[in-house]
Each structure stands twice: as structure tokens, then as C-alpha cells.
Amino acid sequence: MSRVAVLGEPRLWIGVLICMVVTFVLINVRKLQPNADENYGRLDYSLGLLKQEKERALCLVMTSRGSLSTKARVVINTWARHCTKVIFISSETDSQFPIEGVRVDVSREYLTAKTMQAFRYIYENHFDDADWFMKADDDTYIILENLRYFLTSQNKSEPVFFGHHFKSIVKQGFYSGGAGYVLSKEALRRYGEKGHDPKLCRPDGAGEDVAFGRCMENLGVRTVNTTDASGGADSIVFAPG
């Protein structure tokens, strides 16, 4: 009786080992097989990132000497790092900071002149460095990943610009200067070629965002609806809270 029991043990263990090997193989084969839904999501996400990378965005940040060590420093250390190229514009240069100077007064009443000259400078010196050109202030915060994602659905060759839309004063409305606005390459080209005409683009005066909005309208540059699928604004001019 004991001999039968002893002879039976190897058979039992062999059976157990075979089951374990088969289970191990099946589990690992399952792991190696692609999950269609999972891979589709990964592929879609990867392609989305690659597509966003192709949207070259130049960030034009308006600042002043008094804000270089505070507001401008925060900008350059946070969201501006995600720009294809970032250029700070002030009324004067500073050897300790990457800034370009334009010869205008620092007060708000000359903000139109500062903005017009800034875009003139970008057109003449950095037109080929990007496909989209965003103007922002040193107290503006931009989520570049979201901006680039939006830009993948737009055409840089179309005369368009985007921002927080106010439907007043200008026939097609204008975009808030505080929230910032983005010009397509074609919009900047039109400004560079014809924006020096004071009949089309007022070179100075109060109300920078209104003046620039009217300038764009005169140049045939269109405003575009930038609200998301739920009707929410992509660009917000007012402080949260």
C-alpha cells in the first residue's frame, strides 16, 4: 500500500508542474498581446503631442524695467519655457535680462505704440522663427500645451487671430490686451507689409487692444470663435476668484 502511495506522488507533482507551466505561458502570452483600446489611446496621445510640437509659437511678452526681477522673472521661469521662442519687450534694454527695447514711453498711454512697434520688430527679425505669434503681458499666465492643442485645428496661412473676445467698438470685435492674443503667420505678414499705413493701423494712442483689433480688421484679419465644446472661454481676461 505504501509503495503505491510513493509511486503516486511523482505523478501528482508532475501534473501540478505542468499546470503551473501552462498557466505561466498563458499569462505571459496575454501580456504580450496588444490591447487594441489601450494602444489606440497611447498612439492617439503620442501623435497629439507630436502634432502639438509642430505648432511653433513665439511668445512676445510686454514688460518694463521695474518688473524684470519680479513679474518677468516668474514668466521666464514658468510658462514661457514652453514657448518655441520668447522675447521680452520693454522701453529699454537690460544687459542682465533677455529683453529687446523699443523707443517708447513706459506709461500706459503709449501702450499702443509699444505693441505696434513690438510686432514690427518681430516681423522684421523673427518672422521665420515661428508659425504663431502671441502677445502677452508680464502678469498673464498661458498654458502653452492647451494653446498648442487649439492651434493644431487652425491654419497658420489664414489671416486670423485669437483671444478673449469683446463684441463692441470694432465691427468684428476685439481681443483683450491683458489676456493676450495670438496672430497667425499670415496675420503678422499682413501687418508687416501694410501695418505702417496710419490709415489702417493707428501708430499710437490709448486703448491698445481696441486699436490693434481695428488694425487687424482693416487688414482683413478675422476674429475666430475660441470657446470650447461646452461653451467655456479658452482665454480669460479677469482674475480668478
Rank of each mutant, 00 (worst) to 15 (best):
M1H: 01
R3Y: 01
V4N: 03
V4A: 04
L7A: 07
L7V: 01
L12Q: 06
I14K: 10
F24P: 00
L26T: 02
L26I: 04
I27D: 05
N28L: 08
Q33R: 03
N35Q: 00
N35F: 00
D37F: 00
D37E: 07
D37V: 02
N39W: 05
Y40E: 07
G41E: 06
R42S: 00
G48F: 06
G48R: 06
E53Q: 04
E53F: 05
E55A: 01
C59T: 02
L60P: 00
L60G: 05
L60H: 09
M62G: 06
T63L: 10
T63Q: 12
S64K: 10
R65C: 09
G66P: 07
S67F: 14
S67G: 04
K71T: 08
A72S: 15
R73E: 13
R81G: 12
C83G: 10
C83A: 11
T84S: 15
K85L: 11
I87N: 04
I89F: 13
I89C: 08
Q96F: 12
R103S: 15
E109G: 01
Y110I: 00
A113D: 08
K114M: 10
Y121E: 07
Y123L: 10
E124T: 13
E124Y: 09
N125H: 15
N125C: 09
H126K: 07
D138I: 11
D139N: 11
Y141F: 11
I143N: 14
L144V: 15
R148I: 11
R148K: 15
Y149M: 07
F150R: 01
T152N: 07
N155P: 05
K156W: 06
P159M: 02
P159I: 04
V160N: 13
F162W: 05
G163H: 03
H164S: 09
H165T: 05
K167N: 06
S168V: 04
S168M: 01
V170H: 00
G177R: 13
G177S: 08
G180M: 15
G180C: 15
V182Q: 12
S184C: 02
E186C: 03
E186T: 08
E186W: 01
L188T: 06
R189V: 03
H196I: 09
L200P: 13
R202D: 14
P203K: 07
P203V: 12
P203Q: 09
D204F: 08
D204H: 09
A206Q: 14
G207T: 03
G207L: 08
E208Q: 10
D209G: 13
A211K: 09
M216E: 06
M216T: 06
E217G: 09
N218V: 02
G220K: 11
V221L: 04
R222V: 01
T226C: 11
T226K: 01
A233T: 05
D234H: 14
S235M: 08
F238V: 08
A239K: 10
A239M: 07
P240Y: 09
G241T: 05
G241M: 10
